[in-house]
Design a binder for these strands. Structure first.
Lengths: 217, 217
DNA sequence: AGCCTATTTCAACGTTGGTTGAAAGACAAG
DNA sequence: CTTGTCTTTCAACCAACGTTGAAATAGGCT
């Protein structure tokens, strides 16, 4: 019965996730985390080896699940196209929809997680290494699907396009409040339906223009 | 001749900018900054009132210049279209080209600055407030230009599209190394010519698709 | 020269950071 | 009940944090 201790472990992860997402790794104190988790400070070092390891565990926990559901969505959309390739927009939707579903199920948890991912992705210190470690296999699979949907496209165009996608996606799901301020309430960062309607279309148009330029056949 | 002290002040700002950009506000120590600036710790509190004020000064210093050159570029492109409106791609290029020019002039400085901006923009704690404080007037002007170029477009589509642009742009100029890792060297984050060729086109396509959907007139 | 202000140095303050060792409690197995 | 293992608490260490006051220096002005 590892249940009781397992629950503590999860409470620590939840608290750490929320605080890291809100203020960033360095700004958050182990003592803050354990206060929020309603547990003794030393327990952090019993369940995890260090603050840094706790951070990695927070990242890992949901990355596995997210990668799994995204992979499933991608397989799904490819399964629906046995002969031809799916459209770019369908592929991108297979990347974003699983996330939108998770946010609909448990907004609090996944919102914190995505806010954290946005900070990691945009950090020079961590962006290169951590994002690669946790998301590379799925992203490569995703890029391969895009390559099939855009057979005349250079490698470089796909990678650059994916990079633009990655920036747009991470900022959007971070829900920083910037959009809300800028639009004076016309748009709300937390409005997932608006994202679902717009983001895949916006990004697909970018891919298609970059990969079918007038200077190429 | 305030030159000598002014030079110290600038060295502090440079050091702070580089370190904040690399590791984030909270991870950086005033002592680290002053060591890099080759000055005594206490000088930080003579030239600035607190660590937080120093951070604000770092952000402010280049924001003013960047806003100025971007405004000039926007005026320029609008001046070249006395009757019709500029294209969306031209407007976006007026937003990105000044930055590319500054990076070409002094890559080190502006690279650090943009890496810092990327972190701020993606932080829930700061993203809403600080980005608004430093960049709102210009961004609103820029959005107004886009509105003219897309007269049939809803407000919401423009704000969402700008938000996607903002995410793509900040991640791209942050040069985190993610793209380099992912593409196995096919693309380099530091390749500004590649950005100039691709980013405005990619983003303009997104705006145009979102703002001219088949479901509207 | 001496004076005045702007700048820089030095040494320290109190607090809080991550982390740890040893002891206490919980609880199943024998 | 006793033993042993997993979990939790308690108290503390020491290094490093942001910040400050007072003393030293520098450099133009009279």
């Amino acid at each position: 019965m590892a249940t009781k201790a397992q629950a503590t472990r999860e409470r620590i992860l939840d608290a750490a996730e929320a605080l890291f997402a809100a203020e960033g790794y360095a700004a958050v104190t182990v003592r803050q985390i354990m206060k929020r988790a309603r547990a003794d400070v030393a327990l952090a070092y019993y369940h995890f080896d260090s603050k840094r390891d706790l951070f990695d565990a927070v990242l890992m926990r949901r990355a596995e699940h997210l990668n799994a559901v995204r992979l499933e969505a991608l397989d799904d959309v490819e399964g629906r196209h046995p002969d031809d390739a799916p459209t770019v927009e369908e592929i991108i939707a297979a990347f974003t929809n699983p996330l939108l579903d998770l946010l609909a199920e448990d907004h609090e948890a996944w919102h914190h997680y995505m806010a954290l991912i946005a900070q990691v992705n945009n950090s020079p210190e961590w962006g290169g290494e951590l994002m690669t470690r946790y998301f590379d296999p799925l992203v490569r699979r995703f890029i391969e699907a895009l390559r099939k949907a855009l057979p005349h496209c250079d490698e470089a165009e796909i990678f650059w396009s994916y990079h633009f996608l990655s920036g747009a996606l991470t900022l959007t799901f971070a829900e920083t409040g910037r959009l809300d301020n800028l639009s004076d309430g016309v748009c709300r960062s937390s409005d997932m339906a608006s994202i679902a309607e717009r983001m895949p279309a916006f990004l697909a148009a970018g891919f298609e223009r970059l990969c079918a330029p007038s200077t190429k056949d």
